[in-house]
Amino acid sequence: MTLLFNRPTYALALLLTLALPWLAQAAEPLPSWHDGPAKQRLLAFVQTVTDPDSQGFVQPAERIAVFDNDGTLWSEQPGYFEALFAFDEIRRLAPQHPDWTHQQPFKAVLENDHKALAEEGTQDLLKIFMATHAGLTTEAFGDNVQRWLAKARHPTTGRPYTEMVYQPMLEVLDYLRSQGFTPYIVSGGDTGFMRAFAEKVYGIPPQQVIGSRFVTQYQLMDGKPSILRTAKIAHNDDGAGKPESIDSVIGRRPILAFGNSDGDLPMLQWTAAGSGPRWMGLVHHTDAKREWAYDRDSNIGRLDKALDAAKQQDWTIVDMASAWRTIYPFEASATAQQH
């Protein structure tokens, strides 16, 4: 047999072949996005703020990006995942609280009475969160969340909740980090709940996760220091609470903000009010086939006033049905296996 090329040439060819998938991904940021206006506007913005020769150049330390979690980084239907966790925790703890079988709102949870739960007021629903989120240490609460995430499955897809994340948004996070951005989660969910999975799922470390908080208390138990989560809300990180926590925790105004509901509107307004280049985006849930379709009339993730503001101020509206090639990572994996 006659060799068509020598060993050095063969080795180089093999190296290039192995590198092609990586080179293709590097050459095409956001591969799960269709090449439409939403993708192009985001790429153009990042190029502007990272080009030292651009008038809109922003120093890396100031490249702060903030993201809502529910409905922006992962799904939020048929209910907020943290609420579904709280309901499961009520069922798990029920044997220790026999009075719950005849006491609302716990009775409704134990009987899977969705109608009664829907009719409960904010104070009654808060009782469920107090019973499942407070009165234990931060470590114990985090362990409860991780145990639940390991076993619980989404009621519609049957997938672990940590697989119900958006592949296109994971790519945005990776892309921004590669361009010197620091991404933060700024969401209405409990900080401890999100910290239990954010680093593993999103690559966002605990110190970059901002959410609603309970009043905590330092204590010594058997000579061992711990932080107790008390039954009192310290901060509700929704609506106006988001820019308030950004100002107090981050200390810099973001240049990029991503949300999906009216609860994110103040965060988007706060970001937009800064000087220099700004990018504000909304995930619009328009894909009933691959995810869910809802906006103005939804009780979960309502997008009404923020949608109007986005249209009036020319913010980027990411139409899920038309902007995203895939929704979830498991879809991308299945497509790759087919080919």
Rank of each mutant, 00 (worst) to 15 (best):
Asn69Gly: 05
Asp70Val: 00
Gly71Val: 15
Thr72Gly: 03
Leu73Cys: 06
Trp74Ala: 06
Trp74Asn: 03
Trp74His: 14
Ser75Cys: 13
Ser75Ala: 12
Glu76Leu: 15
Pro78Tyr: 12
Pro78Phe: 11
Gly79Cys: 04
Tyr80Phe: 14
Tyr80Gln: 06
Tyr80Asp: 01
Phe81Trp: 13
Glu82Cys: 06
Ala83Tyr: 14
Ala83Gly: 07
Phe85Lys: 05
Phe85Thr: 00
Ala86Lys: 12
Ala86Thr: 09
Phe87Lys: 02
Asp88Arg: 03
Asp88Gln: 08
Glu89Arg: 15
Arg91Asp: 05
Arg92His: 05
Leu93Pro: 09
Leu93Val: 07
Gln96Arg: 11
His97Ala: 02
Pro98Glu: 07
Asp99Ile: 08
Asp99Pro: 01
Trp100Met: 11
Trp100Arg: 00
His102Ser: 14
His102Asp: 14
His102Asn: 13
Gln103Val: 15
Gln103Ser: 08
Pro105Gln: 10
Pro105Asn: 12
Phe106Leu: 09
Val109Cys: 05
Val109Leu: 08
Leu110Pro: 06
Glu111Asn: 05
Asp113Thr: 12
Asp113Leu: 09
His114Glu: 10
Lys115Gln: 11
Lys115Asn: 09
Lys115Ser: 11
Ala116Gln: 11
Ala116Tyr: 05
Leu117Met: 08
Ala118Val: 05
Glu119Ser: 15
Glu119His: 10
Glu120Arg: 07
Thr122Arg: 14
Gln123Ala: 15
Asp124Ser: 12
Asp124Val: 01
Leu125Ile: 10
Leu126Gly: 10
Lys127Arg: 15
Lys127Pro: 07
Ile128Gln: 13
Ile128Val: 10
Phe129Ile: 02
Phe129Glu: 13
Met130Tyr: 13
Met130Arg: 07
Thr132Gly: 03
His133Trp: 04
Ala134Tyr: 06
Gly135Trp: 14
Gly135Phe: 04
Thr137Ser: 08
Thr137Gln: 06
Thr137Ile: 07
Thr138Gly: 13
Thr138Arg: 15
Thr138Gln: 14
Thr138Leu: 09
Ala140Arg: 02
Ala140Asn: 10
Phe141Trp: 09
